[in-house]
């Protein structure tokens, strides 16, 4: 009896413990692909009462499948062309602690959607919105800002970056806008 009770307990614990990490959405609703604009206000000045900042929790960061998709898209959409596999080149590196336009998920999302001066193209309308979140999640994982058990390990390519598992998490340093 004891054994059985123990087993039931262990099983329920295990089922509860199964988390967002393994979730996969295999059929996206077209709504998730809808084009959206930026989220973050670029100016602190607002007419009337200032409305509170929107805090975004990017669920894709916790999902291994989404992170892996983000990695694939990062290559497909040629982010690699400028940022390399995180080390930077024409564009700034993404695997260090320097963030010119903010390190929060919504900052990265907006950077991709709107583009930034001096070379970052605007991908708004060209990439479904959920994919932007996936790429944003992957970009954050490059500097160890996404949970490591979910983050993708090495690529099937020439080694170009340190796998997140063997990397220390870096505290983001925000450069001024």
């Amino acid at each position: 009896m004891n054994v059985r009770r123990l087993a039931v307990f262990a099983l329920s614990l295990a089922l509860v413990a199964s988390c967002r990490r393994e979730q996969r959405e295999l059929r996206r609703s077209p709504a998730a692909a809808a084009r959206t604009g930026g989220i973050v206000r670029l100016s602190d000045l607002q007419p009337g009462q200032p409305s509170p900042d929107i805090i975004v929790r990017n669920l894709s960061e916790e999902r291994a499948y989404d992170l892996s998709e983000g990695k694939r898209l990062y290559a497909s959409y040629n982010c690699v062309g400028c940022h390399s596999h995180g080390g930077g080149g024409i564009g700034p590196p993404l695997m260090d602690s320097e963030w010119i336009y903010g390190s929060n998920p919504e900052n990265i999302h907006d950077t991709i959607v709107e583009g930034r001066p001096n070379g970052m193209p605007s991908f708004g309308g060209k990439i479904p919105d959920y994919q932007i979140w996936e790429i944003a999640a992957y970009v954050r994982s490059l500097s160890g800002l996404a949970p490591t058990p979910a983050a993708p390990s090495r690529d099937d390519h020439m080694i170009t970056r340190v796998a997140p598992q063997s990397k220390k998490e870096e505290t983001p340093k925000e450069a001024q806008k």
Binding site: P30, A34, P128
Partner: peptide, 10 residues
Amino acid sequence: KPGVLMPPNS
């Protein structure tokens, strides 16, 4: 084809 890499388009 569930899981296909092509995204839906709105």
